[in-house]
Structures are given as structure tokens and as C-alpha cells.
Design a protein around this nucleic acid. Structure first.
Lengths: 221, 221
DNA sequence: TGTGCGAGTGAGTGATTACTCACTTTTATT
DNA sequence: AATAAAAGTGAGTAATCACTCACTCGCACA
């Protein structure tokens, strides 16, 4: 696989700028591609298979999405665009930051918000994780974007809660890394490895996870 | 990719049974394959690339390993064979189970043991995780093996420590799932996502991780 | 009713894929 | 030194890959 040579994130705007409403066949193609990429991975799915699954001629795929790469990107980019900024905008609005909230409340809102988002786009999330792990190039291109959006927003929060004496006395970067490792690990385990229906009581699940992380990160007495 | 039709785990014995010492060229092939599979993934690596990297004719690969599938398996199977049983045999011998040890000591021994093992076979671990996530077939075939080896050994341990009143009052399966999720998540984050040299003080890292998990799982007062 | 245009088609293309096989070279055994 | 087996080779093969292009179709607008 060879992704576009230039920084592909610039394509986000180009991609969604002149966004005409998709054709019926276009939707079928996207649906089929999402299904098959999530199941077998991008590299193991051929365009002819996608065409067959979508009930469309192979040429139609290339009429709308010039290459197989761009088909993948036209699935992933809107998802990325919607997902990362909304971590801030969604979560930070749900809990009122003007008043002093606890780190626990913040964490609970964050986790609940992300779980609902991933559940709503489970297959695309699977594709994204698979390709980030499988394709070094995609990973490398996404890294600065993630660092900028996540790290720069969460780190100050951690610093603040540390100052409030709520968090364990470790460097903020270390706390961040622990948080990232465990949250990300949880999402991968739950949505990519463990069976789909393993969690019955979602609220209890979040409660356990938050408690778990809080016990590991809160200030020791 | 099409893995062998029959249960491939039976091939473990067949594979390593009549284990003649490998040729110089065989080693070069394996080394090249490990390097490239870990870097680009199995599906994105061609046998001609491997041959070139190993400084060998392409035919030589197929002389020794009949198919590309079997080349992958001859890398993964010895690793799997060595890794899963040794979780029990290694860890369970390190800590003396005859006397009453704490869950914390058990956990620390387990994590230290696994980190050292993965560090010693970092690239093959990466290949295994990538292919388990990417290839549903491999995942499905590995599942019962993992369940049998891990779950059946760890669950009784959890039950026991629960009876000793060390662990939080949740079903053993839930504790197991939390443990698995966070340990597995930690390994994936650390060895597949985060940069290689991020951990300087290994002992402190284990300490933090054990504390973290213990605080989340130990009996609440 | 004609005309232009984007949507859709599918046979065709060159490149690449995993894999084969007739052959040569190296190694082991006597 | 003779011989057989094993290791190594690389041109060749059928299949599949992503992608192209000359073409048809259906529909809006004149």
C-alpha cells in the first residue's frame, strides 16, 4: 500500500469541502468497504471483492474514489475529523469546567463519551486501529495530529488536578502515559479482541473502569 | 492469506518434531522475514522482498518453507509454544506457591516475567499481535488455545486470592477480564504504539503498573 | 425532441503475486 | 575419489492485483 505522498491530513479539507451528496451506489460501495476492511483488513481486501459485495461494477469504485487508498481515506478521515476534536468539545461541554469538578467526574464523562462514540462507529474504529498498527506510514502521519489534539488538551487538565491535590505525585507526562495506555488498551481489548456482547451493564462497566483508574491515579494518603 | 485448512496448532508438534538444525540461508530468511513482517505486516510483504533482503534466491524460501503461510507459522509457532505454557511454569516457579504469597507478589512476578519475555522477542510479539488483530482466522484458531492455557490457570488463582479476602468483591470472570484487558492493553500500547525507548526505569514502571492494578482490584475497606 | 453530462459499466492492461521445476552446486557418506 | 542426497537457483507460470478507457445509459434543460 502506498498512501498519497503528501501529508494526507491536508486532504481532509479537500475531501469534505465540495461534498456533493453521495450516489446510491457510492453508499453501497462505502458500506461494503467498511464491512470488508473491518473484517479482513485493507491489505487483504481486493477492489473486485468490494465491487461484488456492493453489487457494482469495479470501474464505479474508481470513478468516485480515484484509488484504493483514497477509498480507505474517505472512510477514515471523516471519522478522525469527527472523533478527535469532539473529545474536547463534547466532553468539555458535558461537564461544566467553570466550577471545580473532580478528576473522577471528568474521567467518567470522557470514558462514557468515548465508549458511546466508538459503539456508534464500531467498524470504522476497528479499521482505524488495525491500519494504524499494520501500516507504519499511517501511524507516523497520524502521530502529530493525535499528540496535538489529545495531549495538549489533557495534559493541562492533569496539571490542574494535580495542583488541586487529587492526583498521585508523578510527572504529568507519566500520568498521561498511564491514562493513555489503560484507556487505549481498554478500547482495543473490548472492541477488537473480546467478543461483542461481553458487556451487559454498560454503566457498571464504566463505574468499574473509572474506579479502577482512579484508585491507580489518585493521591495516596 | 489462507492458512492451512486443518487446525494449525497440530502443526506445532509436526513443525518442531524433526527439528534439524537450520541452514545459514534458512536463518537469513527467517531474520529477514521477522524484520519485514514486524515492520510492514505479513500481507504487505512479498516473498521476493524477503528473498532480496535475505540475499537469497526466491526459490530457496519455498524449498524450506513450502508456502508463505508456513513461513509465518514457523516464526510464530515456536514463540507461542514457548510463551504460553511458560507463563505458568516460569512464573509459578519463581514465586513459591506452597507458602501463602500475596496477589500483589504474584502479579509482580507475572508482569516482570512477561515484560522480559516480550522484550527478548519484541519483533515476533509485534508480528503475532498484528496478525491476530488483522487476520480473523488466526485469531479464531488461537482463541481456544489461549483460553485453555491462560484462563484455566489464572482463574483458580483469582478465586483463591478472593477467598483469602485480598481481592475486590466482583465475579472472578470480571476480575479476570479487567486483568486481561489492562495487561494486554499495556503490552500493546507499550510495545506496538508508544516509542521504543519511553521506559527508562523498568523496575519503577512495573511498580507503578502493579500498584495501579492492585489499587483497582484489591478489597475495598 | 435533441443535446450535453455525470453515473455506471466491464473487458482489457501491465505489474506483481505466490509458487514450480529443471537444473547446478554444495555437502555428507563410503 | 565416487556417488547420492540435500541445498540453492532463477527463469517461467497462472492467477490476481489495482487501475484504465471507450462506451452506454438515464436524466435535466433547451
Amino acid at each position: 500500500m502506498s498512501l498519497p505522498t503528501k501529508n494526507f491530513l491536508k486532504e481532509i479539507s479537500l475531501q469534505t469541502d465540495h461534498s456533493k451528496k453521495p450516489t446510491e451506489k457510492q453508499q453501497k460501495i462505502i458500506e461494503a468497504a467498511i464491512k470488508m476492511f473491518a473484517e479482513k483488513g485493507y491489505a487483504n481486501t481486493s477492489t473486485s471483492e468490494i465491487a461484488k459485495e456492493a453489487g457494482v461494477a469495479e470501474g464505479t469504485i474508481f470513478r468516485h474514489y480515484r484509488t484504493k487508498d483514497r477509498l480507505l481515506l474517505s472512510i477514515l478521515l471523516p471519522f478522525i475529523k469527527k472523533s478527535f476534536p469532539s473529545i474536547a468539545e463534547g466532553v468539555f461541554k458535558e461537564i461544566n469546567l467553570d466550577q471545580l469538578t473532580s478528576f473522577e467526574a471528568f474521567l467518567k464523562a470522557l470514558i462514557t463519551n468515548r465508549i458511546e462514540f466508538i459503539k456508534a462507529h464500531k467498524e470504522i474504529f476497528r479499521i482505524l486501529i488495525k491500519e494504524i498498527l499494520y501500516n507504519e506510514k499511517l501511524k507516523k502521519e497520524l502521530e502529530p495530529f493525535v499528540i496535538k489534539n489529545i495531549l495538549s488538551r489533557i495534559l493541562p487538565m492533569i496539571e490542574r488536578f494535580k495542583e488541586q491535590g487529587e492526583l498521585v505525585d508523578l510527572p504529568a507526562e507519566t500520568i498521561m502515559r498511564i491514562l493513555f495506555t489503560h484507556l487505549f488498551g481498554y478500547f482495543i481489548s473490548r472492541f477488537l479482541i473480546l467478543p461483542d456482547d461481553i458487556v451487559q451493564d454498560e454503566e457498571a462497566e464504566v463505574e468499574i473502569l473509572v474506579n479502577f483508574i482512579m484508585e491507580g491515579l489518585k493521591k495516596r494518603s
